[in-house]
Lab assay of single mutants.
Amino acid sequence: GKMTGIVKWFNADKGFAFITPDDGSKDVFVHFSAIQNDGYKSLDEGQKVSFTIESGAKGPAAGNVTSL
């Protein structure tokens, strides 16, 4: 299901971020390909987002990341 959280930090050079979920679970890795914005895919620290949890090769990662 959809979860919500806050972007903890975003590394534009490497194209990934971490989200701190609102439910208090541990921070979730985000690859820029999961960001659903049109055009430039970036996130801002402190931004509120919704996302799903996908199981990636290196463990859980956020999918369908959308700005709220």
Rank of each mutant, 00 (worst) to 15 (best):
A12G: 05
K14Y: 07
A57F: 14
V65E: 14
F10P: 02
D22F: 04
G63T: 12
D13R: 04
V7P: 00
G5S: 02
G1H: 10
P60S: 04
D38V: 08
F10S: 14
S50D: 06
A17F: 14
F32R: 04
S50K: 06
P60M: 03
G5W: 01
F29A: 08
T66R: 00
K41A: 10
Q47M: 14
S42P: 11
S55Q: 10
L43W: 10
G1T: 12
P21F: 04
F32N: 03
V65H: 12
S55F: 05
Q47F: 07
D22S: 07
K26T: 06
G39Y: 08
N11I: 05
S67Y: 03
A34Q: 12
S67K: 02
I53N: 07
G24E: 03
N64D: 14
Q47H: 07
T4F: 07
F29Y: 13
V7Q: 00
P60L: 03
G5P: 00
S67Q: 12
A17H: 00
L43I: 09
F18S: 07
F51N: 00
D38I: 09
V30S: 00
E45C: 15
S50R: 06
S55W: 08
V28E: 02
P21V: 05
F51D: 00
T4R: 03
A34H: 13
K41F: 12
G5Y: 01
A34W: 12
K8M: 05
T4C: 13
A17K: 00
N64R: 02
S67N: 09
T20H: 07
K48M: 09
P60G: 04
G59D: 14
V7G: 00
K48R: 12
N37W: 14
F16K: 01
D27K: 03
K14H: 02
T52G: 04
K14V: 02
T4H: 06
S25I: 03
A17I: 06
G15F: 07
D38K: 04
M3W: 05
G15T: 05
Q36V: 11
G56I: 13
A12V: 12
P60C: 14
T4L: 05
I19G: 00
A34V: 09
Y40G: 12
A62Y: 08
F32P: 02
S33W: 09
G15E: 13
K26L: 06
L68H: 13
K58F: 15
T20Y: 02
P21I: 05
V49Y: 02
L43C: 10
I53D: 04
G46W: 04
E45R: 09
K8C: 13
L68Y: 02
I19W: 00
N37H: 09
D38E: 11
I35K: 02
W9L: 06
E45N: 11
V30C: 09
A62W: 06
M3Q: 08
S25L: 03
S25H: 04
F18P: 00
E45Q: 12
K14C: 15
Q36C: 14
G5M: 01
E54L: 02
F51Y: 11
K2M: 13
K58S: 15
V30G: 00
T52M: 12
S67M: 08
A62S: 11
K58H: 15
H31F: 14
S50I: 12
A62F: 07
A12E: 09
T20V: 08
E54F: 01
D27S: 08
I35H: 03
F18L: 11
G46N: 05
V28A: 02
F10A: 14
T20S: 10
A12I: 13
K2H: 11
L43R: 01
G24S: 03
M3H: 08
I35A: 02
V30D: 00
V28C: 13
